[in-house]
């Protein structure tokens, strides 16, 4: 059986066809969250519930969320909203296994993410615009990577800082379930796509759900996993960028981005190296002469 996590909408007929798979179930109506969780958990391993709403966090029915304390909750919202309306819910949110995602292209998000993180609520940036605000992003990176005050992880910084290995590519697209080596997206007819965007555009890699386990063998799938090489067939651009190994060209195609993106990812890479050194240091065995000698 394919090891992919399957991402699909809450559709009982479809989920019934996906028995014993690990699922991310997407819901766009908060009132359906509990049903979706119950239904998916009956037959499947629920990797996460993905709530996508055109509303701020402050508009969510928090009491309803509480019943989901054991379920990883991915809350994809437009903003944090009016803090006064949800400040009493902070403890409740902290008790949940939650990740709050806000859009990069809303300037208020940078402030929101600091608030969420400082309240120990895991959160992250959803990139949408082709040309993010690199300076604001760099400030947030410094906060996430070097801040000494206690704070919750901010994605994708945390993903990269905690997973970066020097001799591998680091792909943070999984933060939005868009990493085809880990996630496959399926629509109500059982058509399979490699990212959410492709699913919405009808660009499928396979239209027969019965062939789900064979997707990994499809030449089109294999070549997608190797598509990072396409950058190396161009005369300039991302392959020549020092930060490519953790960006992988995520912001390619917008000429105005460089050198902003390069500067940002160079900083990000330095931070990733710093955290790698901390991790390595943490696992170093130190001599403890006061411990008893092993027999």
């Amino acid at each position: 059986m394919s090891t992919h996590v399957i991402v699909c909408d809450y559709d009982e007929a479809l989920i019934s066809r996906l028995e014993r798979r690990r699922l991310v179930v997407r819901v766009d109506d908060p009132s359906r969250l509990n049903d979706a969780a119950r239904f998916a958990q009956e037959r499947n391993a629920l990797h996460a519930l993905w709530l996508r709403v055109d509303a701020p966090l402050s508009g969510l029915p928090f009491t309803m969320l509480e019943a989901l304390h054991a379920v990883p909750l991915y809350l994809d919202v437009t903003a944090v909203g009016n803090f006064r309306t949800w400040r009493d819910q902070v403890d409740r949110l902290r008790r949940l296994n939650v990740l709050v995602m806000v859009p990069e292209d809303a300037p208020v998000s940078y402030r929101d993410l600091r608030i969420l993180s400082s309240l120990l609520i895991p959160c992250g940036i959803r990139f949408g615009s082709p040309c993010p605000d690199w300076e604001a992003l760099t400030d947030l990176l410094y906060y996430a990577a070097y801040g000494k005050v206690l704070h919750a992880p901010i994605q994708p910084f945390h993903f990269v800082l905690s997973g970066y290995e020097r001799h591998q590519r680091t792909d943070f697209s999984g933060i939005t379930f868009d990493d085809p080596s880990r996630y496959l997206h399926i629509d109500s007819r059982g058509c399979i796509a490699l990212t959410r965007k492709e699913l919405e555009q009808g660009a499928f890699i396979e239209s027969d759900l019965e062939k789900l386990d064979a997707v990994g063998d499809l030449p089109a799938y294999q070549s997608r996993l190797e598509s990072w090489r396409d950058f190396f067939l161009k005369q300039d651009g991302c392959a020549y960028c020092p930060g490519w190994r953790i960006c992988l060209g995520a912001f390619a195609g917008t000429p105005g981005n460089r050198p902003g993106c390069q500067k940002f990812f160079a900083e990000f890479l330095e931070a990733a190296e710093y955290h790698l050194d901390l991790r390595t240091e943490a696992t170093r065995t130190i001599l403890r002469p006061w411990d008893a000698c092993p027999a």
Binding site: H167, A239, Y240, P242, W244
Partner: peptide, 8 residues
């Protein structure tokens, strides 16, 4: 950078 990216 090109060569180091190609051969991490």
């Amino acid at each position: 950078y090109y060569l180091t990216n190609l051969r991490l």
